[in-house]
């Protein structure tokens, strides 16, 4: 035999047969959960699946789910990357508030809208850098390191807003958040773009492999020559910018910066979406598509509770029960039992 890698890099051989099947299998359970929720919706509310084009814009419950889920989706995609490297980012909700406050302040300072957007994203990048530096350079546990910004960040946002809700008018930002691009609401396009960028960063560069490698075994990654500090910091940068984008969407939506409520508890929805997508908090895997399914499960649930006409005080309980059932569906013992039942019926 010859162990000659340059020669080994030549002609591609057969496509991997097992890989696509396996990924279908991974997405199967989250998709099943989503399908069941939507199926229930179809019974509760006739016309749930109807999509209409009114004045050049798409309307319908499904579009509404995508519309309302877009900010969470953006945050959750960043969270999926952080969790893949065995980290966690509790500060995303606070970063949303900071982004909103900074953006509002700069609009009032008379800066041009694109410059405001860039500056806001830069600030959220710095928030990510802060988290990344605490985790990677100072070796502080991620949950504690990001807790600092989670608590302090909202305070910073409140200080920028001087304790009030500051409103603004901006056609540019309204267009980004509540406008439409062709028939599609523009924020769905923004979320789709963030999804595409995340996918490209994770699957079209080696960053995804390095993130998963660091998540699976940080010491072995170091000994394989991976710059684990760089990789860890990058994950928090991605999460920070993602939170910043979500902050822009949310703030533009209400045309004002509400430091007390913008992005409140968003970190929990984002983590939940990643977990609903089948990822482990122990790191090692980034499931980008599944995370999106996780977001859709959470959002379609909220929307279904609304259309079902259930009194609002039941919302949280119903949500918790359904989320619990979704996670139950993904727990290995339950999965095996369900698979067993399906097999038993076939034979």
């Amino acid at each position: 035999m010859r162990l000659d890698p340059p020669a080994a890099l030549q002609a591609p051989t057969r496509r991997p047969a097992a890989a696509p099947k396996f990924s279908e299998w991974r997405a199967f359970w989250p998709l099943l959960a989503l399908a069941l929720i939507l199926l229930v919706d179809a019974f509760i509310s006739p016309g749930f699946f109807t999509i209409r084009l009114v004045e050049g814009r798409l309307y319908g419950s499904l579009i509404d789910i995508l519309y309302r889920g877009a900010p969470t989706a953006v945050v959750a995609l960043g969270m999926a990357v952080v969790i893949g490297a065995r980290g966690i980012d509790l500060s995303v909700g606070a970063v949303i508030a900071i982004a909103g406050a900074v953006m509002t302040e700069l609009i009032h300072a008379g800066m041009s809208a694109p410059a405001v957007l860039l500056a806001t994203l830069l600030v959220s990048l710095i928030c990510g850098l802060w988290n990344g530096a605490l985790v990677a350079l100072l070796d502080i546990q991620p949950i504690i390191a990001t807790l600092i910004l989670m608590v302090a960040g909202r305070g910073v946002a409140q200080m920028i807003d001087a304790g009030t809700i500051v409103t603004f008018r901006s056609d540019f930002f309204s267009a980004i958040s509540t406008g439409r691009l062709g028939p599609a609401p523009s924020r769905i396009v923004v979320a789709a773009a963030v999804y595409a960028l995340t996918w490209a960063a994770m699957r079209r560069t080696a960053l995804g492999l390095f993130v998963e490698s660091v998540g699976a075994n940080a010491e072995a990654s170091r000994l394989t020559g991976i710059d684990a500090k760089f990789v860890t910091i990058s994950t928090y940068l991605i999460s920070g910018v993602a939170a910043g984008i979500a902050g822009v969407l949310i703030t533009s939506d209400i045309r004002g910066s509400d430091a007390n409520n913008a992005g409140l508890w968003m970190e929990l929805d984002a983590i939940l979406a990643v977990v609903l997508g089948g990822a482990s908090l122990n790191g090692g895997r980034v499931y980008i598509f599944n995370t999106l399914i996780g977001v859709l499960i959470i959002q379609s649930l909220t929307t279904s509770i609304l259309v079902s006409g259930l009194p609002p005080e039941y919302n949280l309980i119903v949500k918790a029960i359904v989320v619990f059932l979704c996670l139950l569906l993904q727990a290995r013992p339950v999965r095996q039992a369900v698979s067993g039942m399906i097999w038993a019926k076939r034979t």
Partner: peptide
Amino acid sequence: REGLMLEL
């Protein structure tokens, strides 16, 4: 501990 990424 130092060699493999077991999940990969």
